[in-house]
Design a protein around this nucleic acid. Structure first.
Ligand SMILES: [Zn+2]
Ligand SMILES: [Zn+2]
Ligand SMILES: [Zn+2]
Ligand SMILES: [Zn+2]
Lengths: 161, 161
DNA sequence: GAAATTGTGTTATATTATAACATAATAATT
DNA sequence: AATTATTATGTTATAATATAACACAATTTC
């Protein structure tokens, strides 16, 4: 594994061009294998989301999209995001009303994030079993059946402390 | 402990009048002890939030407030909510853009919720050490310093399964 | 009681998101 | 290949959530 392939914004040696390239390749493969239509708009919105590891709002994406596609309107980007979120290519960050690319959409998982309040970079945890178990344990105590979770941890990344 | 004092919406025997009474008493005491001004508007908004264990949106609260106070406007309710959230009397549920009363504002804590997607009732966990430890563990692995968290678990409560 | 601080009234506007219906593109069926 | 059904996009309008800015009132501090 070369230094270029270290993943995640909080990893030293992180090369973002590799993130983008990998994400787009994975998206293409996933959509092919599941017979999903990664249309031009959807693909472009996914690329725009992957501009960085800072979550992007729908209207930030819309603004960028409009630079290339003058007739883009809110539904254009919201529909693309709906598709991307549905298939785990993108996650919505509830506490920010914003969207972030997922680097492992092919594996079924719940999303959990570390959000740096200084540099605004977001890292997705790898479907932490530790957190999942803790959540299950608490839910079980109350006879609650979990179907989904929002776990968004705010703080400072190592570089920003 | 009488049956009337069993707390939380997912507890059998839950008596909501007791929830409201207790919440308002605790709020009064807390504000007195911390020298905070629980003004008429703030107190009334808190009562409106405590109408039930379903989270209330700002505009739902505004509508109710207007029935009594015809000149209430969005800032009226948002300002009251800002105060209540700042002092933990109310928590914001990010995934719902809505607000819910806290029954233990006097103890410093992070908020964690179980949200029933059928009956819409929300229960706040008691600052689960289990979840907190799991979150800390994951954060530590990446050298991340946690300052706040959003933990919102969606699913079905025991009664709705 | 004057000054400073905090809270509220009021108007306007920013931001986020969806409804509704028309048209276009693609896929499936014949 | 033409027909039909389905899915995606274009377009206009509007709903839902949230804040900015400034005037005025109430309360606290000095
Ligand atoms: Zn990257
Ligand atoms: Zn993911
Ligand atoms: Zn109750
Ligand atoms: Zn609480």
């Amino acid at each position: 594994m070369s230094i270029d392939s270290i993943a995640g914004p909080f990893q030293p040696g992180h090369n973002h061009k590799v993130c983008i390239r990998d994400a787009m390749n994975i998206a293409e493969q996933l959509c092919q294998s599941k017979d999903l239509r990664l249309t031009k708009i959807r693909k472009r919105v996914l690329e725009l989301v992957w501009t960085g590891h800072e979550p992007a709002t729908a209207y930030q994406l819309l603004k960028k999209l409009r630079a290339e596609r003058e007739n883009a309107e809110p539904p254009t980007v919201y529909r693309a995001l709906d598709f991307l979120v549905e298939h785990n290519l993108v996650h919505r960050i509830e506490s920010l009303n914003a969207f972030i690319g997922c680097d492992h959409p092919e594996s079924e998982h719940v999303s959990q994030f570390l959000i740096c309040s200084h540099c605004n970079q977001v890292a997705e945890l790898d479907d932490s079993v530790t957190i999942n178990n803790a959540v299950s344990e608490e839910a079980n105590r109350l006879g609650f059946r979990v179907s989904d979770q929002t776990v968004e941890i705010m703080g400072l990344c190592a570089a920003c402390q």
